[in-house]
Write a protein that binds this DNA or RNA. Structure first.
Lengths: 340, 340
DNA sequence: ATTATATACGAAAACGTTTTAGTTGTCAAG
DNA sequence: CTTGACAACTAAAACGTTTTCGTATATAAT
C-alpha cells in the first residue's frame, strides 16, 4: 500500500491537516515543522494520490488529446512531431498527457464526454478544426478549457494556433509556375476541415495572380489523409483528357502516394511532372526525388498550443487568442524546372 | 457542474447507493428500477467522476507509457506505430493511455513514481529493456503490473513481448552474404539495451556460419537511435583503412543517416555498398534506393503488449509470460548484388 | 400463526486529499 | 487582570463513488 498523509501524520504525532498544509507551504505552519514533514515525506516515499487530490481540487494536471484511429492520425509523421512537442512542453510544466483513441465517428463525442465530464483532464487540445465542429460546440457549451490546432469559422471564437495555409499553398504554386509549369492540379484535404478551404484559396490566388485559369477538373479533394488517397487522387488526375503536368498536394503523406502514381505512369517527378507537398515531414527530404514541401513549424505549434492551454487552465489571460504562423517553402527536387 | 449520482438519486427519490448499484448492474435491484435509473442517467448526461471512482476502487482504467525525450522516442516512426497499436487496443478495452515525458535520465525514476504511487495508472508498458534496468527493479519491488517490450536478462523474470532480433539480423547478414558482400559492418543499438547484444549475436552467427571472420573494427555501437548517429557511425566505418562494402544497421532511422554517408562518399547503395536495416518503418520502402529491412510486426507487438497488460491488471492468468515474435526480412534494392 | 427466504432498497463507512473554521497557548498592550 | 492579537496547530466537512451490512416488505414453507 502506498504511503498516505495519514501515515506521515501518525509517525510524526501530527494531525493530517498539519501535514497537508506543511507539504503545500501554508503560512500558518512553523518552518521547522514544515521541514520536518517534508523530510519525512520524502524519506517515506510519499506520493500524493492523484485521485484523491483531483477529487478534492478538481484539478488533474493532465491535458487531453483525442485521436481518431480511422483518420489514421497516429500514423502520420506530422502528428508524431506534434505529439512530441506537446509532450515536451507538458512535461516542462508538470503536466501529463492523456491520449484517448476512438475508432468510429459516432464514438467521438463519447470520448470527449468521458474526458470532460469524467474530469480526467483539465483541458483539451483538439486538432483539425472542422466546419460545424461539434467538438468545439460541445466544449464551448461546457465552458471547458481548450485550444485548437486550426482556426475557427468566421462566427466561432476560441483560442487557436494555425498556420497560414493560403500563403503556403500560394508560395508553392507560384514556385511551380516559376519553374515553368502551367497546368497545375490541386489535391486537397478532406473538405470538412476548415484548413482545406484556406489552402484552396492559396491555389486560386496563385493562379489568378499569374493570369492562369482554374480548371475544376484539376481539383480533387481526398476523403482521408493517407498515402493511398493521394495515390488514387493522382491517378484520377492523370487519367484526364488533359492531365496536369504538376500538382500541389496538401499533405506530404498524400504526396508520397501521388508520387508513386506519377512514377508508375512512367513520368519523372521534377522533370515531366512537378510536385509540391505540405507539412515537410522528415521523410520528404529522403524521397527520390526529394520532395519540395511547405514546412509547418510543427514543433513551435505544439509548444504554443500547450502553453496557451496551460495558461487557460490556470486562469491567466492569453497574450493573443489567435496565433497564425508563417509556413516556409522548402525547395527540393520534385519541383525542378519543367523540361519540354 | 457535472451531474453526479446524488443528482440522479434526488430526482428519482432513490438513495445514492441504489442508483450506483443500478448503474453497475447489481443483482439486488429491480429490473424496472435499473432501467429507469439508466435512462435518467443518460438523459441527464451523467458521467462518473474518474477521480472519485478511482479513489474508491483503486482502478483508473488507464495504462501508462513513459517516454524519454532525449532518447527521441517520440520522433522514431517505429514508436509511432507502436503507440498507434497500443492506443487502438486500449480503446478496444475502454482504457485510456497516459503519456508521461521526461527530459533527462535522472527524472526517469520520478516519472515512474508519479505514475505508480500517485496511482495514475493501473499498469505500465515499458519499452527498450536495459541491463540492470532500474525501472523494472522498481516496478517489481512495488509489485506493480507491467509488461515490457524487450526481453529480460537471464535472471530477471517478467512478462514481455520481444522480437527475435538475433534471427532477424542473421537473416539480414546472410542475405548480404548471398548477394556477394564479404566485408560487412555492423552498426548497433545503444549497448545498454538488452536487444543490442542479441542483434550482435545474429551478426556473429551469420559470419561464423559462412566461415567469415569477425573484424572488431567493423562493429560500432551508437549512443542514440537517431539518423545523425547512424550517419556518423557510417562515416567512421568508411574512414577505416579497410572499410566494409556492406553493413547491417540495427534501426532504419539510423540506416537512413548511414545511407546518406555512403552516398556522400560517391558510392551507390545497392551496388557498391549493401545495406540492410531493422524495423521496416514505412519510409523504408520510399527511400532511394528502397531499403532492405528486417520487419518487426510492430502492430502485433503493441496489441499483444496491451492485451497482456490488461489481463494482468484484471488478475487473469497469462497464457504465455514471454512472447517472442519472428521478424521477416523484406528485401528491397539497398542490398542488391555486389557489383565488382 | 410462525418462521424462513427472497427481494428491493437504504445508511453509512471508506478511499486520501484540501480547506474552512475553529481551538489552543503565548505574549504584548491597555 | 483583561483583552486582543498572533502563531501554530487540529477537527471536521467535503469531493463522488463503491460496497458492506442492514432493514423492511412480501412471499413461501412449516
Amino acid at each position: 500500500m502506498p504511503v498516505t498523509i495519514k501515515d506521515i501524520a501518525r509517525k510524526l504525532g501530527l494531525s493530517v491537516s498539519t501535514v497537508s498544509k506543511a507539504l503545500n507551504d501554508y503560512p500558518d505552519i512553523a518552518p521547522e515543522t514544515r521541514e520536518l514533514v517534508k523530510r519525512t515525506a520524502r524519506r517515506m516515499g510519499y506520493q500524493p494520490s492523484a485521485a484523491a487530490r483531483s477529487l478534492r481540487t478538481h484539478k488533474t494536471n493532465t491535458i487531453g488529446l483525442v485521436f481518431c484511429l480511422l483518420d489514421r492520425h497516429l500514423t502520420d509523421p506530422y502528428y508524431l512531431d506534434l505529439l512530441a512537442s506537446i509532450g515536451e512542453e507538458c512535461s516542462r510544466h508538470g503536466f501529463d498527457l492523456l491520449l484517448s483513441a476512438y475508432s468510429s465517428r459516432d464514438m467521438e463525442r463519447a470520448a470527449y464526454e468521458r474526458m470532460v465530464e469524467g474530469q480526467k483532464v483539465d483541458g483539451i487540445i483538439l486538432t483539425g478544426t472542422r466546419y460545424k465542429d461539434e467538438r468545439i460546440a460541445y466544449l464551448k457549451e461546457k465552458g471547458f478549457p481548450f485550444v485548437a490546432l486550426g482556426r475557427s469559422e468566421k462566427d466561432g471564437d476560441f483560442p487557436y494556433v494555425d498556420v497560414d495555409g493560403a500563403k503556403g499553398v500560394r508560395d508553392g504554386v507560384q514556385h511551380l509556375i516559376d519553374q515553368g509549369y502551367r497546368r497545375i492540379g490541386f489535391i486537397g484535404l478532406p473538405e470538412e476541415l476548415i484548413c482545406s478551404a484556406h489552402r484552396f484559396q492559396g491555389y486560386k490566388m496563385a493562379l489568378e495572380e499569374n493570369g492562369l485559369s482554374l480548371d475544376p477538373h484539376l481539383v480533387i479533394y481526398c476523403q482521408h489523409l493517407t498515402q493511398d488517397a493521394g495515390y488514387r487522387a493522382m491517378q484520377r488526375l492523370l487519367e484526364l483528357d488533359e492531365p496536369p503536368n504538376a500538382a500541389f498536394i496538401c499533405s506530404d503523406v498524400m504526396a508520397l502516394g501521388a508520387m508513386m502514381a506519377v512514377q508508375e505512369r512512367g513520368l519523372t517527378v521534377g522533370q515531366d511532372f512537378g510536385i509540391v507537398g505540405f507539412d515537410d515531414i522528415p521523410m520528404a527530404a529522403q524521397l527520390q526525388p526529394p520532395l519540395t514541401s511547405v514546412r509547418q513549424p510543427i514543433y513551435e505549434i505544439g509548444t504554443l498550443l500547450c502553453r496557451m492551454l496551460i495558461k487557460l487552465i490556470q486562469g491567466e489571460p492569453l497574450d493573443e487568442l489567435h496565433i497564425v504562423l508563417e509556413p516556409t517553402l522548402v525547395i527540393r527536387e520534385s519541383s525542378k524546372a519543367h523540361q519540354r
